[in-house]
Structure formats: C-alpha cells, structure tokens
Nucleic acid binder design. Structure first.
Lengths: 213, 213, 213, 213
DNA sequence: GATGAATGAGTTTTCATTCAT
DNA sequence: CATGAATGAAAACTCATTCAT
C-alpha cells in the first residue's frame, strides 16, 4: 500500500547519477520529469501525462511510486529545496576560514545561480513553484525554505557585524531583494545569448556594491 | 458573436474608476478578477469559474465580453503591461529635465514598485504570468514588453554615457538583475510585515550603489 | 456551487409524475436511473455511465445536479427509504380504527410488497443497496431505516399486547425474519411466472399463521 | 498458463481443515478471502487487492491459481453452493426415517441457518452474490442452485402430500418466501445482540406455523 | 511459487464552452 | 445582458492483468 523503495536517497549525489535499482531509477526519472514539467507549466499546468511522457513511462506507473499528483509534486519541490540547500552548504564549506563576509556572499551568489541555472531543474522548480502551491503544501515546505533563508541571513548579518554592510540598509528587505535578483534569472537567462559567467559576475558586482558601506 | 465593445479604453484612467455603462463596468470587473486569479493561481490554474466568482457573475456571462478564456487572459495581461508602462511614463515625465541618470533610475525603481505592489493586480499578473503563457500569446505581448524594457534600457544607457555606471557592468545582464530584484518583491512583500517605503528605499539604495561607478 | 433546484419535492407524489420544471424532471430522471442501476449492479457496480445512459443524459450532466457519485447514490437510497415509508404510512392510515392487529399486519405486508415489487425501483434499490454502502453513508441512512422498522415493531407489539402473537416468539427476531421473507422477493419474483397477487397472499398467509398464537 | 491443481477437492472436509501442501493451503486462503470480500462488497466491489490483502498474498499471486478474477469468484460461489448442499444433505441424512415432514423442515431450517450464519462465509457469499453475477456466470451456477431448491421443494411437497401443509398455499411461492426469511438473516443477525439459538427457534416456529394446515 | 514493476482499459471528475431562453 | 442547463474533451485516478525475475 505504501510507496515502495524505502531507502531511496533523495537528493544525494549518488541518486543523481542514476545509481540504484531499476525501480529507484524509474522513480527518479519521474521526479526529474516533474521538475521539468513544473518549470515549463507551473503547478496547475503540469499534467501527469506530460510528466509521464518526459519520464518515458505510462501515466498510471506514477501511481506505483506516488499516491497522488500532489504527493509527487511535493516530493519534486522538496527535493529541489534540499538540493539547493546542499549545494549551497558545500560551496560555503569550501571557503577558507577568515574569508571576509562580502567574499562569502559572492560565493553564495555564484552557488545559488549555478544551482538554479545549470545544476538542476529541481531547484528552479522548487523556487518558482512554491508560491503557486496549495496552502497546505506550501506550509509543509516552509521549514526547508526558512532554513535556506537562514543561511543567507547569517551571511548578511556577518557583513553587518563586520561593518561591511551599509548602515542604512534593512537586512530583511535587502535579503529578499537580492534573492529576487537571483531567482528571476531563471525567467530570462538564455545560455545562447549570454554566458553564465556574465550573469554571475554581474550579479556579484551589483550585489556586492549594492550592499557595501 | 464577436466581442461587443470595441472602443473600450483599456487601461485608461476613466475605465479604472468604474465610469461608463453597466456593461463597461461588468467587463472591467471581469478583467480585474482575471488579474486576481492569475496572481493567485497562474495561467493554467486560473479557472473561469474562479474568475466568475471573483467578478460576481456567472461563468457564461464572460462569453458575452470575450470569445475565449485565452482572449480574456491575454487582455488582462495586456492591460497590465499597458498600465505598467503608463505609470512609468507618467512618473518619468514629471522628473525635471537635467536630473542626473541615477536619480531618474531611483524614480523608475519607485514607480515600478508602486505599480507592482499597490496600484493594480494587473501589473503583477502581467509580469508574473507572461512566462507561463502559451508561446503564441507570449509572443504577442513581446512588443509591449520590449517597449517597457527599452525605457529601462535607455535609463541605464544614459547612466553609462554619463559615466555614472560602473565600467565593468554588462548593461543587459544588469538590467535583468535589477528588474528581477523588483519583480520578485511580489512574491514576498507583505504590507503587514514592512512598509512599502522600506522596500522602495532598500531597493533604491541597493540598485544605485550596485550600479554606480 | 451548491446543487441547484432548491424546491424539488423529493419523493412526493407530484415529483413522481414528472411535474415541475425541465430541470426538476432531469434531476428526477437521474435519480430514477440511479435506482435502476443500483438494482441491476449494486453499489460498486453502478457506473455513472450506466446511470447517464438510462437517464438519457451525458455523464457530466450528473455533476450539474450532484457533486459526486456518492452523493447521487445516497440521494437515490434516501428517496427510496422515504418512499417506502410514505407508502406504508398511507396504507396504514386507510385502515379503519379498531382493525385487529393481525389484519393491520396483513395490510403492511401487502403495502411493503407492493412498494418493493411494483411501485418503484427506489424502494428495492434502497433496501438491497443499504448493506453494501460505505459505512459512513450507511450510518447516515440509519435513522430513516429505524423509523421504518419502528412502524413494523409497533404492529408486532400491538399483536403481542392483544394476545394475538404466539407467546414463545422473540419479537425482534420475528420482525427481521418477516421482513427478510418480504425483502427477498425482489431477488426471485418474476411477474411472468406468478402473479403479484399470489406472492402477496402467500406471504400474508404464512406470516399471519406464523405469528399467530 | 492453466490453473495448476486440477484435482483439489473443493469443499471437502479435508480441504476445509487446511490439510494438504502449502500450495493447497494458499489456494484455499484465497478462496476464503474471496468469500469474505464478496460478503463485504458484493460482486462488483470485491477487488483483487482486497482479496489479496485478506489472504495475505500479493495480488499477482492469485494468478498462479486462477486465470482471472471471474474464475476465482465463480469458484468461491460454487464452493459456497456446494458446501450449503453438503451440510444440508448431512443434516437430513441424520433424520430417522419416518420423521414427519414438518419436523424434517425444522431440521432443514436449522441446517440452512447454521451453514449461513456460522459455518462459512462461502455459503453466505454464494447466496447473496449469485443475483449480482454476470448472466453467464449465474447461469453456470443454475444447476447447483436448482439441486438445492429441489431438496427444499421435496420437503414441502412431502408436507403437502401428507396433508400437513395448508391447502391454500402456493408451494413455489411459499418456498421462496421461506428461503427469503432465512437468507435475509445474514443482513441483520449480529451474534452480539441475540443468540443463534433464538434466530433458529424463531424461524422454525414462524415457518412451521406459517405453513401448517 | 511468488513478487516487484508496469500497463491498458476503463472510471470518476473537472472545465471551457455552447445554447435556448 | 445574463443565466440555467448541458456537453465534449481531457484530466486524475483505479484496477485487473502481465511479465521478467
């Protein structure tokens, strides 16, 4: 009765590379397809038949792994949030101790944009879809979102403490403005019209100068 | 069969104030309701029955004014883009000649945020919905979008010409980053948790410093 | 949102004869068709497409009147119970005061069989379907059932009081045995193989002699 | 492809006591589970997944023993009819020669109720499900039913011949009324609200007096 | 013997749309 | 102008059944 595949490691690197049993790989294809469909059409527009087609299964096969469309979508979103968090943590973990706050923010900007624009549909799906989700579902993702925001918040708070942040800036508002600048890139960035490098550098420059004292 | 009121002045101030015949007012209620529904549920999720309920009409009544759901949605989006453009033009027209480019950009930031966050659901609906629209429809809104982008582009180009813009910044990318920061406010700004003033000031500061040489 | 047709007189004689607006008549056709389908295939087997076909509408039309299959089925069952009750009450009301209990029981037997076998599919549907209904639905019909049983119970109690009922009989068990004898007729009686008269007379004789002191 | 265990002794005492290989016992669990499911939900409502769950196997395992759902259901029904017949025969066989017809009828009443209410879900399933079966399947069970009816018919005919049966009673109708009274007990008898003894005695009294001259 | 995985054929349900009034 | 009534197309979901292992 319950969904199978107990030990699937959602969001781990291994899972991402198609390891595991055939069943795990099918399940993963379905979740990936869901992220793609959410990106293309949003919460209400992502049809099971679209998802099935992308995942190369028949639509009812989805019900072998998930008990409803909403459960599937929630999983895709939740994996996306987890992956975003994970990649950000990895990126920040590699920054040497003692790195000044503004430099760490530059790293975070690059990590966020990398995740969003190249590493996975999941991250983009999660970020863009969350606002459209039914209330109950959205609330269930709240903690994950808050945890991610907390990382950013800590970065800005450090900058403020060290005096690198302009005094007259409201940290909360600034944070949302910065994340907006980054998140919106999904809507317009086209790899064929400009390099990812350019986007990242531009964003880093704008944000660093924008925040600086 | 065809829509009856060809000469309605979409987006003009008069229409906005509920003037005109009963028919015109009903039509307007429907378009407003559509914008609300698009904001709440996105393109695919905005049902005619939702729209009808918000507009306080029966769903088939919509067909008296529009020949299909898509036509209605396109109108709502198009009104939103027009209104955004209109308010921006008005705001910039009031800026005295000779105002330095960066100050004009501050005015534009305030105008954009005002439109988006308080003046109408239409602007928000337009901006958030466009990326979800079916390709053909989206393309039909292209010119309006481009015209709006051109205004912003001119502001940045002026700043570059006058040397107020940092040399190492890619204007196109910077513009999209800036607009992203502004547009994303719709997703998070809650009038009860922070004043519009704070949002506007924060955005202005960040953007001005971010862009400045 | 709610089901329409506020004033439909469920189960009244007028409604049965197709009076009322077109809408009322369609609604009634659907309920009638549901009773027929329930008789033919039981709760789980009665498909909306069957019902629609019998009612001569398209299946989605059903949703104009009922918000789900279960709601429709519950209405059909509930109408059936109401009609059974109604016809029984009418029959007993016509019995002159002072009629001995056993004679009143004969009248009840005839009324029950008439309702079940000729007057309406609803009564048969209700009686046969109730045991198959999902628990919640069944419980909601409990009161109606109990009220009907109470009528019978009163008849038997009168017989006991007047000394017409055999002393060694358990009233509750006897009642159920009697009703079983009557209800089961639906499963076997074929108008072409024996007259309704015969069934009624046989049942009356058996029951009267069976119960008598 | 075909069912594997041709020579299983359906309905024999040995089979009932779980003798035989593991395979035979699994098969039996499945048939028992089917009877239970048929009782609970009727022909259309008894899902293979329900049956599998009750039998504690996975649904596809059923196909090792039966080639289709219908074949399984038919077997369960047919076992039920056979068991009913068997128990009735045994009961009547034990009645001494020369026992008066009415007494033999009392024995039959007790045997029928015993089978139905305590000895097996199969008998109840068979009796209640037969009317819901698809026509072809029902017809295939016809002979078994007729054979059982014939036993009862003979009992009543004997009573008529010996003059113990009321003259004005139609034997066919009376038989069906009697069986209805008995069969319907399944729908209402609750071991916690009244003893089986009471049901049997009440039924015997009613039926004997009801039929008697 | 039995199961995990999957599918095809249907089922209920939703929704934009039509149309007579 | 507007609505009550209805429908066609497509959506989510269910379920018996298959099949490789």
């Amino acid at each position: 009765m319950a969904a199978p595949t107990p030990g699937r490691a959602a969001g781990t690197s291994e899972a991402r590379h198609g390891a595991g049993t055939k069943s795990e790989r099918t399940r993963e294809r379905i979740v990936d397809a869901t992220a793609r469909a959410l990106n293309a059409r949003g919460y209400a527009g992502a049809r099971l038949s679209d998802i099935a087609e992308i995942a190369e299964v028949q639509a009812p096969a989805i019900y072998y792994y998930f008990s409803s469309r909403d459960e599937l979508i929630e999983e895709a979103v939740s994996v996306g949030l987890a992956r975003t968090m994970e990649l950000m943590s990895e990126a920040l973990a590699q920054v040497p101790d003692g790195t000044p706050p503004m430099n760490r923010i530059r790293v975070a900007v690059a990590a966020h944009l990398n995740t969003l624009l190249t590493h996975s549909d999941h991250a983009a799906a999660a970020i863009r879809t969350v606002p459209q989700l039914p209330k109950e579902m959205r609330e269930r993702q709240f903690d994950a979102q808050r945890a991610y925001l907390a990382i950013w918040r800590a970065l800005l708070d450090d900058a403020r403490t060290s005096g690198d942040l302009a005094q007259d800036i409201d940290v909360r508002a600034a944070l949302m403005v910065v994340l907006g600048a980054l998140n919106w890139t999904v809507e317009w960035w086209d790899p064929e019209r400009g390099s990812l490098e350019t986007v990242i550098t531009t964003a880093q420059t704008l944000i660093e100068h924008g925040l600086a004292a």
